[in-house]
Nucleic acid binder design. Structure first.
Lengths: 235, 235
DNA sequence: CAGTGGTCTAGACCACGTT
DNA sequence: ACGTGGTCTAGACCACTGG
């Protein structure tokens, strides 16, 4: 007699058993699995339940499915990790530290050619450039260099960024936009080095993010993280 | 009479319309949505279909759901990005370049205290340490420093890593294991600098990955990427 | 304790892609 | 042409949790 330890939902229990068989190589990479109806019969569940289990395992990269072709174990597993991108404030407060914010500079400028191309700006369109410092318990945590397209977001020209950062303002104003995010390693520039309190050239983890709404570029930001910043995920 | 342009699956069409209402602020952040049954009625679909639409929007970070509490628009959207982690070989060949591999060193060692703790090694357990270079069109692309627990993977001691990398061997041998991955920025060590052809201290994007199978740590790897390496995602 | 989401079922039709 | 997965439906029971 079997004792269920946790009474997992049926589709989850099915997923675990299938994954167990894959790891045990009962179904090896490349192998063709039985059809949904047959599997449903074997596991004693409805086809809908089996379909959900197989669909989720496919999304997680363990299986490949094709109509008429059937379901196969992925030859080499597709490894993918999911990273949550929190607001700096939430990230800092999650560690128990007190969040601090400081507006370093604010001005209107044209920006470089690469940046103008990235944001798709016309000849006479200007940018609002902001530099801000985010602090944890009073210590520099992240330097934010941001460019906002004034033509796409005219309200930004009238917004006050002295008390809270443009990030939070943007989340309030244009939530649910499209984003491209990019991570790289860079040596600290003079500006970054001065405000983060490190030597120029110090390797820093950097985030670049561009935001669009309905195909129109709104803003681009460069986030220089404190030394020893790391991004972690499990999968 | 309505003309469907693309005939999207019902649940997907429902998702799009709900997302449209959220972006149009017909349902603002924090707002409570009608219940599943009512929404299903309004959209003219079965409850199961509406449930799938709402469930997926929740997974994507747009909604929050609680039993009895109902469904709400997330106050500030939870931004998450999914990154695919390819094998180096695939990554290089995807750019059209020719993949090259070189085993730099191979030896048995004890490893540092931090590493031993990370891998959960007992007193007399040894590590196999490998250093390898991955090349694109003959140019250094990525330096791999790997430690393999011999007690967890005794076959590794007999494997030949001179022709292809430990990564590919591991994917064949122990696919579908549990992984913790971590990204950071580091200055190039002497070893890394020499083989990647950069000056020591050059900022490099670094990946650290630890792999477990059934709770037992198998291997830890440090990947130093070439200069200008970036990781990109959209969401 | 009552209402909401979470899940399951049995049956059905359809689209795609291999044969 | 035909088999497989993709999706939808109508109805049901259950678990969690807020009022």
């Amino acid at each position: 007699m079997k004792v269920k330890t946790k009474a997992a939902p049926g589709y989850a229990a099915v997923k675990e058993e299938i994954l167990r068989r894959i790891r045990a190589k009962a179904w090896a990479p490349g192998d063709l699995l039985p059809g949904e109806i047959e599997l449903a019969g074997e596991f004693g569940v409805a086809r809908g339940t089996m379909n959900r289990a197989l669909r989720e395992l496919t999304e997680q990269g363990y299986l490949e499915r094709k109509r008429k072709g059937g379901t196969r174990v992925r030859p080499s597993p597709l490894r993918a990790a999911r990273f949550e991108i929190p607001l700096v404030r939430a990230e800092i407060e999650a560690t128990g530290a007190v969040y601090g914010y400081e507006l370093l500079s604010r001005r209107i400028e044209a920006g470089g050619a690469a940046l103008r191309a990235l944001l798709g700006l016309d000849n006479d369109e200007q940018l609002l450039r902001l530099a801000c410092l985010h602090l944890a318990d009073g210590k520099p945590y992240q330097l934010e260099e941001r460019w906002i397209s004034i033509s796409a977001l005219p309200q930004a020209g009238r917004a006050d960024f002295s008390a809270s950062g443009p990030n939070e303002w943007l989340v309030q104003t244009v939530p649910y936009s499209d984003v491209e995010i990019c991570f790289e390693a860079n040596g600290a520039s003079a500006l970054v080095a001065r405000h983060l309190g490190v030597a120029p050239g110090t390797p820093l983890f950097t985030t670049l993010r561009t935001t669009w709404l309905k195909g129109k570029a709104l803003t681009h930001v460069r986030l220089s993280h404190h030394v020893h910043y790391r991004m972690v995920a499990r999968y």
